[in-house]
Amino acid sequence: MKDTASLISSLVAVVRDYGNMGFNDEHVQRWLDQFPEEHHKVILTELGNILDKAYLSEMETKRMISEIAADRNIFPEGVGEVRFMDPKQGKGTQKELLQLFDAVISEEHGISIEECGRGEPASYIYIDEAIWSGDRFISGMRTWVREFDDLHAISRMDIIVLAVHTRDLDYITEQMGKILPYTRISLWHFIEFENRLQHAKKVFEGYWPSSGLGYNEETTDYISHIVKMKSRTRDKEIPILRKSAHPKSDAYFTGSMNRKLVERLFLEKGVEIANHMKKPEVYMKPMGYDASRTLGFGSYLVSYMKISEHCPLVLWWEGDGWYPLFPRNEYEGPHPM
């Protein structure tokens, strides 16, 4: 295993362009020092391995946007024939992506996204960074369709995201079918994180702490509180902690023992953060924002624009005595999809 300094430098090389903040070795070391020193190398090794696959740099994001703009499956009659949903109302990462897309099609097609789809278009485009649980996305879609007197007027809807999490994808698909019953709906994405809780025996691409690890008292109490909020049937179907031997496949962590250690450290520190928030929020869980009764959503995804609240608190929370690895100050906005 590399020494700590080399591991820090390797991590910085992957995420150097995050947030225009001058991400450097000293910043990583300050964050790392909040964990026991004997675990620093494992944390850096595993986090570096995850982000090497799950981090979206500005260069990679621009490449994806260019591919989308040139895709004739999405734009069979050219970009000028579709309407982009709410190009002026996007916030946070969505606003950034719309600006990138606008720059690409302006250069390559000589038209802006505001000029696209003038008149009465039948085809619409929704662009955002990712789909997580989908709650806010579905809520926004319900609001948007109220603008139409006749839903038959929306013949096609293309949802374009850089990444998708599969946990609630069936729910999202079902709800979209109800919201737009006469519309042909397509979902386009580059990265897929398989994080269906029911499929965790085979694969689970997200942070989900394991059972049987002997968590500290504060964490054990926190887990017990979540368990009491769930019905016995639901807890058996989707347990709070994943089974120790699952998943069988893992492309992000280097090994099961390291995964268990890192997830335990992130959970215990996350519980500490959650319990000491000055303004606690019921859905802000140790492993990330989640309205479901879990320990948190646990997303791996981080982009150069902003880290999602669906990622573990230890990575982005700032304040209440905690120093973040990925500060969210640069891009304030609503909770992601």
Rank of each mutant, 00 (worst) to 15 (best):
H27Q: 09
S292L: 14
P181C: 05
V79H: 03
S224N: 13
I131D: 02
G90Y: 14
V164I: 07
G296Y: 08
V15E: 01
C116Q: 07
V271S: 07
G48I: 00
T61A: 04
V227G: 01
A245K: 10
P247T: 10
V203P: 00
E272W: 15
D221F: 15
K260I: 01
V203S: 09
I43K: 00
W208F: 13
D33I: 07
D86P: 06
E268H: 00
M85P: 01
I65C: 03
H39V: 12
E46A: 11
D25K: 08
L151K: 04
A70M: 07
V302K: 02
A163N: 06
A274D: 07
I240Q: 09
P336T: 13
V314T: 06
S186P: 04
H335Y: 15
G319E: 11
I131Q: 01
F326D: 02
A251G: 03
N20E: 13
K178H: 13
W317N: 08
S9K: 08
V12W: 12
D168R: 12
D128L: 06
E107T: 08
Y215T: 11
L325T: 10
P312Q: 09
G80E: 13
S10G: 12
T294F: 13
Y124N: 04
F204R: 04
L301R: 02
E309T: 15
Y171E: 08
E26A: 14
L11N: 03
R142I: 15
T93Y: 08
G288A: 04
S6K: 05
Y215Q: 07
K62V: 15
N20R: 06
A70V: 00
V15W: 09
R232W: 15
R167V: 14
S308Y: 05
V302E: 05
T93S: 14
L315G: 05
Q89L: 12
A245S: 12
Q89A: 15
Y323M: 05
M157S: 07
R63C: 14
A69K: 03
V282A: 11
E37V: 12
F190Y: 14
R83Y: 07
V161R: 00
S57G: 06
Y323K: 01
F253S: 08
I111K: 01
M284H: 08
R328N: 00
E81F: 14
K260H: 10
H152R: 04
V79L: 03
E281V: 15
Y18L: 06
E46P: 05
A130G: 08
E218K: 03
E108N: 06
G177Q: 04
E217A: 10
G110F: 01
G319S: 04
W316G: 01
I125M: 00
S224R: 10
S9G: 14
L47D: 06
R63P: 04
E318M: 07
R16P: 06
I8G: 03
R63E: 15
R146M: 09
A163V: 11
I172H: 01
I68Y: 13
K62P: 04
A13G: 14
Y18A: 09
R83T: 13
E330P: 00
S303H: 00
F35G: 10
P324C: 03
E237W: 09
S308W: 09
L44H: 01
E107V: 10
